[in-house]
Design a protein around this nucleic acid. Structure first.
Length: 263
DNA sequence: AAGCGCTTCAACCGCCCACCA
DNA sequence: GTGGTGGGCGGTTGAAGCGCT
């Protein structure tokens, strides 16, 4: 375990709670009830002082985590559905390990749950399919070009996290294969993410992914024809959406509108 | 039944950022 | 401008559960 006293920060920052007399480990039903009742009564927030006021021998952070990941009424329990899994995969490809952002687009799911599901299920699933779970690129160093297209134009991946990528400067050298179209798609997709992060347009873009996901649901409807699904699968929609958003974002009017929004 | 290894996921950790006085 | 505080994030840990031998 990491030793808090050896933390590199070594600042005078006070911890969220004193370690003395603080209970750790799994929550009991009684503690859950106390916490839930208190938050229902007083509302969320003031986590640092919440345990004292609620009469809990817990760290404020622990209370917040318990509420956010387990007790909140909106938290959906149960297995991740296939359509949710598909959405997680696509959002991860776009966002990297931005679990909170991904969770924000999947109603009822928490960042912790998605992170766990990714680490225990999806990463292994991708590896078994010959795909690097971190980069979403084929593990095979010389992939079949046609496979790249069906893998939804693998994104740049030296570091998939938009925060640390330095997207604009790495976009060019990160693409090791693929057509010019793919190149443009990747560059513009990254620019799109960078420029629109936490912005309405980005939100709309992510919403479009969810709509895409709804199409997957449609595929599961009894009257949906599998033959058409083969030629018009969600990967195609994804790429179509990407192209559309790329074109939109690259037009002068859209760019100026975007700049105005960002100003 | 017991022991062992693997998997899962709740919980904890340090770090970071935004906000405010 | 600076420091303290609250809150959130992603990475990691470890106990519990499960299956296999």
């Amino acid at each position: 375990m990491r030793n808090p006293s050896s933390s590199s920060s070594g600042t005078s920052k006070t911890p969220c709670c004193s370690k003395v007399g603080i209970k750790r480990g799994p929550w009991t039903p009684e503690e859950d009830e106390i916490l839930a009742n208190y938050i229902k009564r007083e509302g969320e927030g003031r986590w640092r002082t919440l345990p004292k006021h609620a009469g809990l021998l817990r760290c404020g952070k622990s209370c917040r985590l318990r509420w956010m990941n387990y007790l909140r009424p909106s938290v959906k329990r149960g297995r991740i559905a296939p359509d949710e899994e598909d959405l997680i995969l696509r959002l991860h490809r776009l966002l990297g390990n931005r679990w909170s952002l991904i969770a924000g687009r999947i109603p009822g799911r928490t960042d912790n749950e998605i992170k766990n599901y990714w680490n225990t299920h999806l990463s292994k699933k991708l590896i078994s399919q010959g795909i690097d779970p971190r980069t979403h690129k084929p593990l095979n160093p010389n992939p079949n070009p046609t496979q790249i297209v069906h893998d939804r134009a693998p994104i740049s991946t030296q570091d998939h996290n938009p925060d640390s990528l330095g997207l604009k400067e790495t976009a060019g050298n990160a693409i090791q294969s693929g057509t010019n179209l793919e190149r443009n798609l990747v560059v513009n997709e990254e620019d799109y993410v960078e420029n629109c992060d936490e912005d309405n347009m980005f939100s709309s873009f992510l919403d479009s992914l969810i709509n895409d996901n709804m199409f997957v649901n449609q595929q599961q409807q009894p009257n949906f024809h599998p033959s058409s699904a083969q030629t018009f699968n969600h990967a195609t929609i994804w790429e179509t959406e990407l192209i559309r958003s790329t074109i939109d974002a690259s037009s002068d009017d859209q760019q100026s509108a975007l700049n105005n929004q960002l100003a």
